[in-house]
Design a protein around this nucleic acid. Structure first.
Lengths: 297, 297
DNA sequence: CGATAGGTTGAATTTTTTCAATTCCAGTGG
DNA sequence: CCACTGGAATTGAAAAAATTCAACCTATCG
């Protein structure tokens, strides 16, 4: 594999550089110490922790495997070390409602603390490497290592803030704005993880995206096509290229379709309209700049 | 005031029996001990706590007052002892997005832990009595009183589960189903608080309900009228009577409007339709039974 | 008692979904 | 190696759901 390649995300799905760094082989599995866990969660680990003793076990899941199911007794939290997942609620007719798409650095299972049963189901969308955090052990440890306790509260609060933002989005935004923000937030996540924020592969189906955003898969597909048509993004199946992140960030509604339908030549005009409709101060992107390729960590 | 009265909720807005129980006058304010706090949160307080020393201060807010605002430095959590509030997000144009309607036993401010700034704004919808929990003090105490620590994790996790349910609702349900569930969950909250679950007053405007449910105020109003028309509820401004809680709980979509419009006499037929459309096993409610009045605690 | 915010209702319009018809692709087995 | 197959994705047209705009009503509060 070349260090620069299009299918960068597929790399994360198997053995990543990261999972090599943050873990040591032992008894045929991987383990991480407290510092590595804190780093993964972006918690300043305050050095003071001398804990080659305190190790947390990793577990690998293959694509499609279930990490936990609804109602299953809760006893451990998980941190995503590599890979991509979805968490879902199942309604009375067995329909899935996607709640989140956890990836590197995210915590899973927090919703199980309250009732001692997981309240959602987590499924691997790619091969995954997760770190196990036995909850009892964790809280006990938290009483000794203050930064760990802060970490716990911080991560749970962050999760809550994220869900609040989600509620705000579902409650207030149009279909187009939801899809736009979804793309932007994905791009930001990838960027944080050291991947390209300009070109990436979606790990989930249109159906899953739709469920997550409260839309049908057709609406998602149409919206992506529309964004492509006015030059905000490029779409090829699950490969997305972000062309105008600023316009996506502030987009509220697309210009009326007639201004798109008129002619293919009016592309730049349509993009300008979109930016205007977005009530943004950002300048329209200077056409298609060459997509930045992958920076392998 | 009579012990049984229609405006039961208004009582909670001022001096309730509860706020008398759970608090003692001292220095002209109210204070609660740890046991009272735990009781309020429905946490088994494990007796062992001998803490007439450990007291938490109450603060009163008048209708319309702001408890905290977005961006304000975080240092304290709040527990609602009495009264009703809303929490909101403010978008870039100053529009409010309602996130929750906290009431007795709910915790406020958890979203501030992560970034040390409150992420939402809390506003009193009625006169309120809140208990202050200085966060630093609380975590320190948590290390000594294990049940308190568990309480913290439990409450935060519960909040998360609640928001997940909200996301599921916004993502998957029709306007009618959302309004129905909103009424049911309100009824349940009131019931838990010792009020009638059959007759209560809404504390919030149609606009606020709409924002909370991701609908316009007109849609909320129309939906309430429709529920009234088919006998699921009675509506008179902010006074809601619940007639058929089972149908509301399982309702997915209303029967087509023509079956409602045909004649006022077809009422029971329409109600049966609604129950059928709800795919529920519950029997349709036996017409209007006299509304149960208030049980004052 | 008039001003005003909240609430209801109707009609037109827009947005999103539903249904249906293809197309595209990845994987499988001949 | 290539034709098949089935899930995923796209696209169009019709239908349904929800919003918008507007008019009007009704409580409440100075």
């Amino acid at each position: 594999m070349l260090p620069t390649q299009l299918s960068e995300n597929r790399a994360a799905a198997t053995a990543t550089p990261q999972s090599m760094e943050a873990g040591r082989q032992r008894q045929g599995r991987l383990w991480s110490n407290l510092k590595e866990v804190c780093d993964l969660l972006h918690i300043p680990s305050a050095a003071a922790i001398n804990s080659e003793e305190l190790l947390f076990q990793h577990v690998q899941f293959k694509t499609g495997q279930r990490i936990h199911t609804i109602g299953q007794p809760f006893d451990t939290l998980y941190i995503v070390n590599s890979g991509f997942l979805k968490t879902v609620l199942i309604d009375e007719f067995g329909n899935e409602q996607v709640l989140s798409f956890p990836m590197k650095g995210d915590m899973l299972g927090v919703d199980g603390i309250h009732s001692c049963q997981y309240a959602s189901e987590a499924v691997a969308l790619s091969d995954c490497d997760l770190i196990l955090l036995p909850f009892k052990k964790l809280t006990a440890l938290g009483r000794v290592h203050l930064e760990l306790e802060n970490m716990m509260y911080g991560v749970m609060s962050r999760e809550l803030v994220r869900e609040q933002a989600m509620i705000g989005m579902l409650g207030a935004l149009s279909a187009e704005a939801r899809v736009a923000r979804f793309l932007v937030s994905l791009a930001e996540r990838f960027s944080q993880m050291g991947y390209s924020s300009k070109l990436f592969n979606l790990r989930m189906t249109r159906h899953e995206i739709g469920s997550y955003l409260g839309l049908t898969l057709e609406t998602v597909s149409r919206t992506l096509s529309a964004f492509n048509e006015i030059g905000l993004i490029t779409v090829d199946q699950r490969t997305i290229g972000i062309k105008d992140p600023e316009a996506l960030k502030t987009l509220r509604r697309l210009p009326p379709s007639r201004s798109r339908a008129k002619s293919a030549a009016s592309r730049s005009k349509a993009a300008a309209d979109a930016a205007a409709a977005a009530a943004t101060t950002s300048t329209a992107a200077p056409a298609a700049q060459p997509a930045q390729l992958v920076a392998t960590a």
